[in-house]
């Protein structure tokens, strides 16, 4: 849809639309800017300016708690991302390229983790792992957190990869097989390079979601497995210190980089053939 002469809003409407759009962006970015500014403030009070300092970032770098939490987050995020990328891509291929029994049910099942509120998902995982722990006897921690993260990430990867697959047709694969490529070769040398941007985008999204999750992680974590967001959430509830500002900015920068990379990845055209 594009604006044309008679439908183009004039006068007050035009200015209201512009003002509203500016307002939305100011609303989106002001809090982020405020947070960044105050993370450099030399004052124990989180919202009061007290001159420039890098102390809070030094505290972050020197604190064993934050370093350990960060390391936990990274380990969980990487493992969860790799597994959900494999499972999500396979399911995207199955749904876009094949008809099979139970396809509709599978589609619905994939859709649920995206819309379910995190509190509900957290409760599900808590009860599930409590029951499982009673049956099989294991302790909560790395495995339970990672398994839960994969459970919601598969769907997001699948959606992104499907969007990519949906925009392609399968004639290239057919052509490759006509030229005596095996099914595997056709996938490896034709399909995979073409959907790679989708896979990368989906993977980065999965990593972001895993690194961001608080609620579900808090429910399925065990001793010694505090992730960075869970640690920050705990700090906020206990009493706020400017250290949180610095940790928040680090998390903010990390997730912004991941999002931008993800958007760039999805924009890249896999080869110039299609």
């Amino acid at each position: 849809m594009a604006g044309e002469n008679i439908t183009e809003p004039r006068g007050a409407t035009k200015w209201l639309l512009r003002a509203n759009a500016s307002f939305v962006y100011i609303f989106f970015y002001i809090p982020i800017l405020v947070l960044i500014v105050f993370s450099f403030s030399d004052n124990r009070n989180v919202g009061v300016w007290g001159g420039f300092t890098l102390d809070w970032y030094r505290d972050f770098a020197e604190s064993d708690n934050t370093r350990e939490a960060l390391w936990n987050s990274v380990q969980i995020g990487l493992v969860a991302t790799v597994i959900s990328v494999v499972l999500g891509t396979a399911s995207a291929l199955a749904l876009e390229r094949f008809k099979f029994r139970g396809r509709a049910v599978f589609d619905a099942l994939l859709y649920l983790p995206i819309i379910i509120p995190d509190v509900t998902m957290a409760v599900m995982m808590l009860l599930f792992f409590s029951e499982a722990a009673e049956l099989f006897g294991f302790s909560k921690g790395f495995a339970t957190i990672t398994l839960s993260h994969i459970a919601f990430s598969i769907s997001f990867v699948s959606v992104v990869v499907r969007a990519r697959l949906g925009g392609m047709n399968d004639r290239l694969e057919e052509a490759a097989m006509d030229l005596y490529a095996t099914r595997w070769q056709a996938f490896r040398y034709v399909t995979l390079p073409l959907i790679m941007p989708g896979i990368l985008g989906g993977g980065l999204l999965a990593l972001t979601l895993s690194l961001d999750d608080v609620v579900i992680t808090q429910f399925v974590t065990g001793p010694g497995w505090t992730t960075l967001p869970v640690y920050v959430f705990g700090l906020i509830r206990k009493g706020v210190t400017p250290l949180i500002n610095a940790v928040s900015v680090v998390m903010l920068v990390a997730s912004t980089i991941l999002v931008v990379l993800s958007l760039i990845a999805q924009r890249i055209r896999g080869g110039d053939t299609v």
Partner: peptide, 16 residues
């Protein structure tokens, strides 16, 4: 902002 950390974005309003 859609994909940046939800916890952090709420905390920013706490500061403000």
């Amino acid at each position: 902002p859609f994909w940046t950390n939800f916890l952090v974005r709420n905390y920013a309003w706490y500061v403000i």
